[in-house]
Amino acid sequence: MADLTHARIRAGIWHGEITGRMPERLIVTYQGRIIEGLEIEPHEAGTSLRLLLPREMISEGAQTCLIADADTGETIAEISLIAGVPVAEDLRVEVASLRAELDLVKSVLRRLAMEAEARGAEPAAAAEAARAPRPARRKI
């Protein structure tokens, strides 16, 4: 099985280093189309791969190109590019969502800590802690 050990993109060219059993034939696809031009260079430590990324891959949103074993379909490498204004907005929304989830987790942990502390106290204190209002859950 081939393992991708190092990858980078520079000036529109993807470079990858593969170790392990190299498949006989590799295939590169982008949006269901086969992409030509994968350069394969074996060396002592493994195999170097080099691919000029298709121009249409440099577009807004998330774009993914796959390098796979042509015989088994096993994915060897996944090349992803993310670009454009919508991505920045998506990331801000995701960060806001994560912050809201973190606030929810913090409130649940505080409540559990209070309940645990109350169980260690007198039974009346435990009953009072159980009746305490719990924070409302926020929809995310």
Rank of each mutant, 00 (worst) to 15 (best):
A2M: 10
D3K: 13
D3T: 12
L4C: 09
L4Y: 06
L4R: 04
H6V: 03
A7P: 02
R8T: 15
I9L: 09
R10V: 13
G12D: 10
G12R: 10
G12Q: 08
I13E: 12
I13R: 15
H15A: 09
G16H: 03
E17G: 06
I18S: 01
T19N: 10
T19R: 14
M22A: 10
M22C: 05
P23M: 10
P23L: 05
P23N: 04
R25S: 13
R25K: 15
L26C: 09
L26F: 15
Q31P: 05
G32T: 02
R33S: 12
R33F: 06
R33E: 11
I34F: 03
I34E: 15
I34P: 05
I35C: 01
I35N: 01
I35W: 00
E36N: 08
G37A: 07
G37W: 07
L38I: 04
L38V: 05
E39Q: 15
P42T: 03
H43P: 00
E44A: 13
T47I: 07
T47H: 06
L49I: 07
L51H: 01
L53H: 00
L53K: 00
E56Q: 08
E56F: 01
M57W: 02
E60Q: 14
T64E: 13
L66F: 12
I67T: 02
D71G: 00
T75Q: 14
I76S: 00
I76V: 13
I76H: 01
A77K: 05
A77C: 10
E78M: 14
I79E: 04
S80I: 06
L81N: 04
I82K: 03
I82R: 06
V87Y: 12
D90M: 07
R92T: 10
V93I: 13
V93S: 09
L98E: 12
D103E: 13
L104V: 01
V105D: 12
K106N: 12
K106P: 00
L109H: 12
L109G: 11
L112W: 05
A113V: 02
A113T: 07
M114E: 15
E115C: 08
A116V: 05
E117T: 03
A118Y: 01
R119A: 15
R119P: 03
A121N: 14
P123N: 11
A124G: 07
A125C: 09
A127I: 01
A129P: 02
A129F: 01
A129E: 11
A130N: 12
R131M: 08
P133H: 05
R134T: 07
A136S: 07
K139I: 11
I140Q: 10
